[in-house]
Structure formats: C-alpha cells, structure tokens
Design a protein around this nucleic acid. Sequence first.
DNA 1: TCACTAATGTACGAACTAGTACGTTAGCTA
DNA 2: TAGCTAACGTACTAGTTCGTACATTAGTGA
Lengths: 221, 221
Amino acid sequence: MTSVEEPARPNGRIRDAVRTRAEILDVATQEFARAGYDGARVDEIAARTRTTKRMIYYYFGGKEQLFMAVLERSYGVIREAEQGLDVEHLDPVAAIRRLAELTLDHHEQHPDFIRLVSIENIHEAEHIAASEKLGKIGSPAVDVIRRILASGQESGLFTADVDAVDLHAMISSFCFFRVANRHTFGALFGRDLTAPDRREHYRTMLGDMVIAYLTAERATD
Amino acid sequence: MTSVEEPARPNGRIRDAVRTRAEILDVATQEFARAGYDGARVDEIAARTRTTKRMIYYYFGGKEQLFMAVLERSYGVIREAEQGLDVEHLDPVAAIRRLAELTLDHHEQHPDFIRLVSIENIHEAEHIAASEKLGKIGSPAVDVIRRILASGQESGLFTADVDAVDLHAMISSFCFFRVANRHTFGALFGRDLTAPDRREHYRTMLGDMVIAYLTAERATD
DNA sequence: TCACTAATGTACGAACTAGTACGTTAGCTA
DNA sequence: TAGCTAACGTACTAGTTCGTACATTAGTGA
C-alpha cells in the first residue's frame, strides 16, 4: 500500500488534500481489513489519522464509498504487481510453475487484501458491482496464463484441456485458502499453513500439482 | 441444519425449551451467515423467531456465545456428514477421486457454513479457540484420506509424498474458493464458478488434478 | 493585500443496538 | 390442587455510531 509518511511540518493546520486523502485510505484499508465492513468504525479510522472524521465525509462521502475506494485501490495495487509478472521467457512448464510460486508468495505478502476479498464476498460483491472501476476488470495474471497455456498446448507439452480462467481459479484457490483460512485451519488441525518453514514445501506442492495436471497422460477421449 | 417446523398448537404461550433453543439457533445461523458477526443483529434474530430477544440471553448468554453455539453446531453437522463418507471399499485412485467429488458437492450444498468459516477467519478463529468443543477437533475426512493415502503409497500407486492434512487442504481449497469467492470472482471475470452446468466440469477437473499429482512420475529424489 | 474558496476542525444529534430489570404464566409435582 | 420454578414477555437504558450543522483558516489569485 502507498504509505504516507512525511516529516510533519512545524505544526498547526497544514493543508494537503492529496496527503490527507491518501492517509485516510491507508488507515481505512487497515481498519476494514481488520474488522470487516460492519465491524470497522469510522471514528476509529478518523482517530488513527492526522485529520478528523469530517474529512472522511468531505473526501469520500460516507462509509460505503470509503470502502469502495479502499477496494478499488487494493485491486489496483494487485493489478500493478501482476503486470510486472515476467515469466513468459521461460518454457511453458517452468513458466506455469514460476507463476504459481509467485502467486503463492504474493498472496502471503498481502494478507489485508485477502481479508478484504473475503469481506467483500460476505457482502456478495455488492461494492465491486457498484464500482465503475472494478466491474469485469479481469486480471493480467489470467492473460499471462492464457498465453503460456496456448503455447504449451500447441507444442503438445500440456495435455490437459483447461482454460486460463479455470486454471487461475485453481492456482488462486490454494494460495487464497492458505492465507484466508489459516486461522480456522490452524485451530482445527493444529497446522499453520503459513509457517515460514513450510512455505517452500507448499510452493513445491502447488507447482507439482499444477504441472502434474497439465502434463498428465490422458485416457483417449 | 436441523430445521424446526411444528404445527403451532392453538395459540397463546407454549413452552418448549428444546424447540425454542433450536429455533433461535436456526435463525441465528442464517443471520450470522448473511451479515457476519458484526453485521448480524440480535433484534433481527429475535424478530424472526417465535420468541423474544430475552430468550436469546436466557439460553445463550449473549451475542458472542450465540455465535459460538452456531459455529459448534455447524461444525457438528459437517462432521456428521463426513462420518458417513463411504469410499474405502474403492481402490485408492477411485477413492480419492470420489472423496474429492463428495467434498465439492458438500461445500456447494452448505454455503452458509462456508460463509461462517470465512467470517470466523476474519475474527482470526477467536471463537473456535474459545470453544471447548472445537479446539483441534480435526475432521473425519482427514482420517479417511490418511488411510487411503497409506494404502495407495504402500501399493506404489501413489508416488507423491504428501501427508493427509496437506492433501485435505489442497482439496478443500478449491471447493471452498469456488463457493466462498464466487461473488468477487464472478464480478471480476464474468464466470460463475457455481453455475450448475459447470459443476460436472469442476468435479472432473479437481479429481484429475489430485490424481495426476498423486500418481505423477517423480524425478528421482 | 484583500477577498475568496478549498480544506479543515468542533460539537452535536438521531437512530440504532446489545443487554437487562422486572413482571408473568404454563405446566409439573407433591 | 396448590405451589413452585423453568420458561417466557415487555419495556426500558446506557452506550455507541454514522452522519452533519456550523464555524474557521490556509493558501491562492486578482
């Protein structure tokens, strides 16, 4: 997240619309991720800001619009990161494996985003639906997968007849679950899916699974 | 969920502690699943019951304990269903595939449970941790997997060196994601992961993936 | 330098919400 | 059948929480 940190000029009222807005967004992201939409407190967000609640309404209009702005920016950050994906110079097998690994790392590095997505799903994606920026935005990762898949299928390396969106869902599932459900999973099974010393294990496991699926010998169909 | 539905005797105050308690639990399950812990309203739960808010406090003590009771019962229902799992008469490959399919169906049939788990993860599993019934409860499904895995590995059918808990996580990931994240996924990619006419597709896909992974030829290690 | 406006702060209110004090009664048991 | 208590209902309160009316000022352009 774009963190706002400035030397804080002397004191007294300083005017900086850009900074104020960004600071509200930063804090709001944390608060919504921490407590969910209904659990989040507008007063709490304001208190953890160098400005007041009044400014939240001034810049965003209300709690709901603030949450939408948080979602929009969070998805934007993820999108940018995905745009930096650089795996297509590898052969298809290595490329997919690398992409799966990067997806896993990426999810682990953005637990707040994962939480926001869970929260938005509890609300049946109503805020995404209401957002002009986010409707059917897709994801650069899917485009990358699409191209790798095409190349692998063409060369005969990949035998599986999958489509990019489904493969993306498959890979994301595990990465998402590992972070999102780590608390209940840990509590019920006594296993921490995000323990640092198990990360490499899960990275390998995911890569093995995806590659095994894509390259498996198929019964004649 | 154990639904409460009775002919509603004449009228006036009827006393039935068991029914009242069960009815509160039913409605609370729906309400918590609908709106999350903080979004759920005690008054709303009471209103949708044939009794009053007073009884919620009488039987459960408070909102928090009510939520714990909801979680405990929900996990209990799932547990019972898993105990009915009957796949061990099949050969290991067929057994794992069948188990994956049943897991997928099962998740799809219990969206409220999925939502409750998502919600509980937002709260970092604090209610599970506080529950005596739910700590390290494990799951019958994992025990089944453990036995099938052992048999498959012994016979040399399964080459992968996985453990039952991790395989369970892998299978659950996809099943869970498909239901839990269907709203954001649908909104962003325009694909409904739970569309009935795609269920068979995803069932096959999941089975193929797990079996491919378990039976893949491994590089000498 | 003056006036104007974008940006900011303070103080408050209306509505909601978890929880409770207190009173009532169905139905069992002695 | 009288009395007792588990089960129930009503009405209320204290505290919270989103949102806003109103006042103020920093900084900019004429």
